[in-house]
Nucleic acid binder design. Structure first.
Length: 554
RNA sequence: GCGCCUGUAGCUCAGUCGGAUAGAGCACCUGCCUUCUAAGCAGGUUGUCGCAGGUUCGAUUCCUGCCAGGCGCGCCA
């Protein structure tokens, strides 16, 4: 079950333990050892700077500590050579065969290879997109549609129990304005001053009237409501359809209205009151969020007796926690970063630990280039690019991959023209190509009747540098998944995939996998074939975490 | 004014607890398919890691200040 890295880390730890026991070192054995994959191949298969880190505590020079540890480490399972370099790095070279065992591990675990239990048992509510149902999803939502979904998959792979949730902002002035806009379009009246003006409003109007011709005959008040509700339902369904096509699925579509209907807001206020952070001032009801780092206190109920949007937010958070979620992750756009303080403070007001129970990810905005120019997005002016349009232009895989490839706190620039090109200017093809290439090799191998029986795998066959590099890259995968989950950074999966693809392509160029001409299959052919097969498994698993397909042919 | 994010090659960007000679793609040049997918491989060119201090064996990474850009600071939703 353990990968070679984990085993080696345990060996290093054990070596330190032995040194301490023998009185060679006086210090506490560190809880974890970090092994790095050195960039320079002369530095062995793995390197650790643990001796440098422990030098001070041990009261010795780093070089001496490294000497002591490396002496204990020599002869450990699978270790071929231990060397000390520079100020005290310990460079470890493994026997080739011990590294090659990984192939069997991967092929046995197959789809489960890379899954960890880093977050086992943790119930996570992952909320993202949460758009108003007053228009199509646009590029602002797109980044989250891709990244949020990928994060959900990554957290699941790390063992967490994840629920993806979309909060429908179906309450308030925006909805009325939206309804009034559709109504006006249907009746041929001018769209209200602050109304929605996109073409889709006219389309919605037609659709509403087509499905219910009598709607225009209703009395004004009833008509207004009927238009709003009909348009709402159509628009929501449209959002769901588009997200479905994009491969982003939600477990729960949570209506803000339902929160109010079930009295959750009053319940939330009551809970906060019991915690002692609610107070009355200037005729309004406030939450003292400033006690927990917020810049100012927030109003829960206005002096006119109505609840604020903030009160919905707090109620919603409390509702999530009462549904049993340990961690609530929010994914918000940079234009909402002002919410972080109050959300965290709200969590603290309910008695939660804002460092653990709530996690707010802020995504910087996406800038779009097309035809060499920046495309300005304005819902008002109707110059939005919708998620659907982006998919039409680039395809789901290219769009998803590009959006996920960058950390969310970087403002990113997307050039539509580049995305449209099916060339390796888009790294997704480079990665997918590696997968398709392996698939082709495996197809050809099947025709040649080469054994892919695990029992015929001989790890000592894999002695080429390229094979060694590939094995090293494959061994990284589980820890990449774990760190992507822990850091909430799915882009790490994409970057890893690119590295793995580079390594595979290099291997492929230098290491012939199948027999040439009339040559008979040898154990080396089988070993390389199984190495290819295990690489294919890892690429497919990683692409799956991004929601990107792993094609058999390209 | 206060707060969050960003500043790394000509362009777009990577770079988990500080680690060895700072990386990738694109762009530009040169080689490699009469045998596994050339959407590939190999090689070449490209840097004041925004600036200035500090912390230490060691700083692109941590701390402080400054400069530049993006975004936000309602009893709006």
């Amino acid at each position: 079950m353990s990968t070679q890295i984990e085993l080696l880390e345990a060996e290093v730890k054990a070596a330190i333990g032995r040194a301490v026991k023998a009185g060679l070192l006086t210090l506490d054995t560190p809880a974890s050892i970090t092994l790095d994959r050195p960039k320079n191949r002369d530095h062995g298969d793995y390197a650790t700077s643990i001796a440098l880190a422990l030098a001070k505590a041990a009261g010795k020079k780093p070089g001496e500590v490294a000497q002591i540890i490396s002496r204990e480490l020599e002869g450990a399972a699978g270790v071929l050579r231990v060397e000390i370099a520079g100020p005290g790095f310990i460079n470890i070279t493994l026997t080739r065969a011990s590294q090659a065992e990984l192939v069997l591990t991967i092929l046995k675990q197959a789809r489960d290879f890379g899954r960890t239990d880093a977050l086992r048992g943790v119930r996570i509510n992952l909320e993202f997109i949460s758009a108003n149902p007053t228009g199509p999803l646009h590029l602002g939502h797109t980044r989250w549609a891709a990244v949020g979904d990928a994060l959900g998959r990554v957290l699941t792979a790390a063992g967490a129990d994840v629920t993806r949730e979309f909060y429908i902002n179906d309450r308030g002035n925006q909805m009325d304005l939206f309804g009034a806009s559709v109504e006006a379009a249907a009746l041929g009246n001018p769209i209200p001053e602050d109304g929605y003006k996109g073409e889709y409003i006219a389309d919605l109007a037609k659709e509403v009237v087509a499905s219910n011709p009598a709607i225009t005959e209703l009395a004004q008040g009833a008509r207004h409501e009927a238009f709003r509700e009909a348009a709402y339902s159509l628009q929501l369904r449209d959002q769901q359809r588009v997200l479905d096509n994009f491969g982003t699925h939600f477990d729960i579509w949570f209506s803000e209205r339902s929160l109010h209907h079930q009295g959750a807001v009053e319940h939330g206020v009551e809970k906060l009151r019991r915690q002692g952070h609610v107070f009355q001032a200037e005729g309004a009801l406030w939450l003292r969020t400033s006690n927990f780092g917020d810049d100012k206190d927030r109003v829960l109920m206005k002096s006119d007796g109505s609840f604020t949007y903030f009160s919905s937010d707090t109620a919603y958070y409390i509702n999530k926690r009462e549904r049993g979620f340990d961690i609530c992750i929010y994914m918000l756009g940079a234009d909402h970063h002002g919410y972080v303080g109050r959300l965290k403070a709200t969590a603290a007001c309910t008695g939660d630990d804002p460092e653990y129970n709530i996690h707010v990810l802020i995504g910087q905005l996406v800038k779009i280039m097309e035809g060499g120019q920046e495309v300005k997005l304005s819902k008002r002016a109707g110059t939005i690019i919708t998620l659907e349009e982006l998919i039409e232009k680039t395809g789901v895989d290219a769009a998803r991959y590009t959006l996920i490839r960058y950390p969310v706190d970087t403002p990113m620039v997307i050039d539509i023209d580049i995305l449209k090109r099916n060339t390796n200017e888009n790294p997704v093809y480079y990665v997918q190509y590696a997968h398709a290439r392996i698939a082709a090799v495996l197809r050809n191998a099947a025709e040649l009747n080469i054994s892919v029986n695990l029992a015929d795998f001989d790890p000592t066959q894999l002695t080429h540098d390229r094979e060694n590099e590939l094995l090293g890259a494959l061994a990284q995968y589980p820890r990449v998944v774990a760190s992507a989950a822990q850091m909430r950074q799915p882009h790490r999966i994409a970057r890893y995939l690119e590295e793995l693809a580079v390594t595979y392509h290099g291997f492929y160029a230098d290491c012939r996998v199948l027999p040439l001409g009339q040559e008979n299959p040898t154990p080396l052919h089988t070993a390389r074939l199984l190495l290819c097969s295990s690489t294919k498994v890892v690429i497919a698993n990683a692409l799956d975490l991004l929601g990107v397909s792993a094609p058999e042919r390209m």
